[in-house]
Computed example of a mutant assay.
Amino acid sequence: MTLNKTFNNIPLSVLDLSPVNEGSDPGQSLQNSVDLAQHVEEWGFNRYWLAEHHNMPGIASSATSVIIGQIAGATNHMRVGSGGIMLPNHATLVIAEQFGTLETLFPGRIDLGLGRAPGSDQATAYALRRTLNMGPEDFPLQVDELQGYFAGTECVHAVPGEGLDIPIWLLGSSGFSAQLSAQKGMPFSFASHFSPDYTIPALNLYRSNFQPSATMEKPYAMLGVNVIAADTDEQAHYIATSQQQQFLSIRRGQPMKLQPPIKNIDDVWTEMEKAAVEKSLDSRSTIVGGPETVKQGLEAFLNETQADEFIINSQIFNHEDRLRSYEIIAELMD
């Protein structure tokens, strides 16, 4: 595929899970998120999304719509939204009202990204819903219902919400949401940052089946990318061991707070665990290094995917290192 886009002229955005560090607490994590959002807005990032996860000691973004309001209130013009709301966990009317309220408070700045996975284990899903009658297979029906609340075609009215133009994105890590996004003529965000092998098949499915809608004439695909940037390759690889430990803990079924970086990651995992983590953190969509390494990695991934936008996740232990990582990316944009 011929490169017809360049890395420094597509929008770059931020995906934040509000990581809770070992030795810290969610209060500090949420303060860090506000600070990061204010910095990346100044540095020219396009949007700032927060992700819904539950029963995870290392993630503070569980009450996603609440944090979106906090971030939007602390910034001025950057778009703020969900990456995403796990719709099977919620009554669609509640989501319509929550995001209708956010859009009313911050007009023209709110995005609603939707996922169909529970974002949690079975026990947590039950605690959230009190019933497991609705599951991922009901996701298309829930999306239709949510659109109906915004359009005012349901018999129950979402106030605030009804009549508001809130962009709805579908998120995915496989082909299901890619195909549904295409059928409904909606923007699509793919989780390349943890599902790299399915990126190209999902994009092909989305683009080849896209049907124009009242809101979109052509497909628009945003891809998740892990980027850990530092002033040198060596420093970046050291910092990246925090993210590697996080993925390792999830693979072991023992999620924990974000751990500080370590000198030798091979001391803590087996060869089989290493292979599994590295498969998820594939070098195509997990880019670790100094400025030139990061620039080359992003350009290569753009060349491969022809993405319309990148949304960048950076699981970094020290807040100052995290700020510096996004600053380096901003400098590359310029």
Rank of each mutant, 00 (worst) to 15 (best):
I85D: 02
I110F: 09
I95K: 01
Q147W: 01
N55D: 15
A158M: 04
D138M: 01
A63V: 13
L102V: 00
W49Y: 13
T104D: 14
N46Q: 13
N76V: 06
T124C: 06
L128R: 02
S82N: 10
I85F: 04
L87V: 06
Y149D: 08
A72E: 11
G108W: 10
I85N: 07
E145R: 11
V143E: 00
S65Y: 02
L141R: 11
H53E: 08
R129F: 12
L112P: 14
G152V: 02
L105I: 09
N133I: 06
L105C: 09
T124R: 03
S65I: 09
H53F: 08
G69W: 13
D121H: 08
E103R: 01
Q142D: 12
M134N: 13
G100P: 11
Y149R: 03
Q122M: 10
A63W: 15
M78W: 09
V66K: 00
D111S: 02
F45Q: 11
E103K: 08
D111W: 08
E42P: 01
L87Y: 04
Y48V: 07
G135T: 14
G148Q: 10
I95A: 05
N133V: 11
S82K: 06
G135M: 05
G152L: 02
G108F: 07
E42G: 05
H90K: 02
S62L: 05
P107M: 04
G100E: 09
L114C: 03
T124E: 09
L146Q: 12
T124H: 07
G58H: 10
I95V: 15
T153M: 04
V66W: 00
P136I: 01
I68T: 13
S82R: 06
E52M: 11
L141D: 14
L132H: 12
H53S: 08
G73R: 12
N133E: 15
E137Q: 15
D138Q: 09
G69A: 13
G69M: 13
R109I: 11
Q142P: 10
W43V: 01
